[in-house]
Amino acid sequence: MSLLQNNFPTFLQGFGYTLLSSIIALIISMILGTFFAILQILPQKWAQKIGNVYVQVFRNIPLLIITFFFFLVVAKVIPMNGFAAGTIALSLYTSAFIAETVRAGILSVDNGQMEGARANGLSFGQSMRYIILPQAFKIALPSLGNQFINLVKNSSILAFVGGLDLMYQGNMVAATTFDTFTTYIVVAIFYLVITLPLSYYMQNLERRLKHAA
């Protein structure tokens, strides 16, 4: 464990960047995911098509390629560092999965809820915001939790583009100490520090909402 002591600031910096990237990506992917989920259930054919193409593109391309696309191609036009490129890629990639999850959630809300709201005078947007989405998110919560945990783990993509995250710092420590096994165990524990409380919190939230209903 002297490895941990000697490199603690390095690991801590990586932990910070991983946490920061995860939080940013979580917020962006929730917004984008919800937006594209709604696009897909609109009656307009063009909106459905846009939503569908977006989801299919970002869901079916490896995250690494999306990341390199931003890091190596987009960066030529809009300068961005590895952290930004990786976080954007992570947001888009995750948003495709969240869009599918939220869409499934919306579809499992009884159609009568929308009719009731529209007949009551609410606009489509108001019906979505106040009636459909709150119920859809509740239904989608378990799989959203899975997406969040995947997101945290997938943030290790930053390591490939010098994003200074936990995995990157782990690689650097492993390369200088040559103690690969111990290094990655330390890295794994740091990931658990984020993911375990997250899954515990999601389970708790699920339980609370179930009781509320």
Partner: peptide, 18 residues
Amino acid sequence: IRKNVGMVFQHFNLYNNK
């Protein structure tokens, strides 16, 4: 129009989350 015309459904369609 919907502002001026109310509707009552067979299956109520109350907002389940309110």
